[in-house]
Amino acid sequence: MSANFGVIVFPGSNCDHDAYHALAHVMNANAQFIWHKDTDLSDIDFLLVPGGFSYGDYLRSGAIARFSPIMQSVTEFAQKGGPVLGVCNGFQILLEAGLLPGAMLHNEQLRFICKQSYLRCETSDTLFTRTIEPGEVLQLPVAHGEGNYVTDSDQLKKLQDNNQIVFRYCNREGETTREANINGSIDHIAGICNQKRNVLGMMPHPERAVESILGSDDGKRIFESALHELAAV
């Protein structure tokens, strides 16, 4: 049986259709939209929390979306081991919901960034990266104003020790130079997972990099890995 992918839609989401297109039309997966007021995830095998400006990013990015009815179901889904991918604003929502540690600040330059970025895969030990070798460099676009990931020194050490840093910003050659750290994130962090390794938050957009005509199809690697893992269950 094919896995069912759910794409959550909040007021202000604007990457939901990108995500649906990537899953349904490019990856040929079963995908459906889930409105933020819905709570039933019984037929969902994989959740994607997309980017955008949920609730206009009032208060803080993701701060209001965290209280949408769907998020209690998302939390329960994740606690049971269900895979959850949060992209950009979705990452911010997962942080606000406590499903991932840390927080987001405004970009170091205090400017909205919309450009191609390079990120280095740091671990294959997640269902999102099982088919990607550590050290491989992916090219994915970013589009955010608050992508400067921060956490305290104790939590950072836990992320490092537990191999929870999944992606780091780098240059084309895979080097984590200061110039490559486009938003100033601590330790070049572009994506992290939880300790159970079933929840991934990342700022770059894999759903916007699934067709080479758009400049890169490296985002397919993440969805291919997820589909491969779910098919093996």
Rank of each mutant, 00 (worst) to 15 (best):
M1G: 08
F5T: 15
I8R: 04
P11D: 03
P11Q: 03
N14M: 08
D16S: 07
D18T: 13
H21C: 05
A22M: 11
A24V: 02
H25V: 14
V26C: 05
A31G: 11
Q32P: 00
F33G: 04
D40T: 09
S42C: 06
V49T: 07
P50M: 05
Y55A: 04
D57G: 05
S61I: 12
A65Q: 02
A65I: 04
P69W: 06
I70F: 02
M71E: 06
S73I: 10
Q79I: 01
K80P: 06
G82M: 10
P83W: 08
P83L: 07
P83Q: 07
V84N: 04
L85W: 04
V87R: 08
N89C: 03
Q92R: 04
L94R: 02
L95Y: 04
L99E: 07
L99C: 07
L100Y: 09
M104H: 06
H106G: 12
L110T: 14
L110D: 13
R111P: 00
R111Q: 12
R111S: 09
I113T: 13
C114S: 13
Q116W: 12
C121I: 04
T123K: 02
T126G: 11
T129H: 03
T129V: 03
E133I: 12
V142I: 15
V150N: 12
T151V: 07
D152T: 08
K157T: 14
K158H: 11
N162D: 15
I165Y: 00
Y169V: 09
N171G: 11
N171L: 08
R172E: 15
E173L: 12
R178M: 10
E179M: 10
E179K: 12
G184L: 08
S185W: 00
H188A: 01
H188W: 13
I189T: 06
N194I: 06
M202C: 14
M202G: 01
P204F: 01
P206K: 00
E207D: 10
L214C: 11
S216R: 05
D218Q: 02
K220P: 02
R221K: 15
F223M: 06
F223G: 05
F223T: 06
S225L: 05
A226G: 02
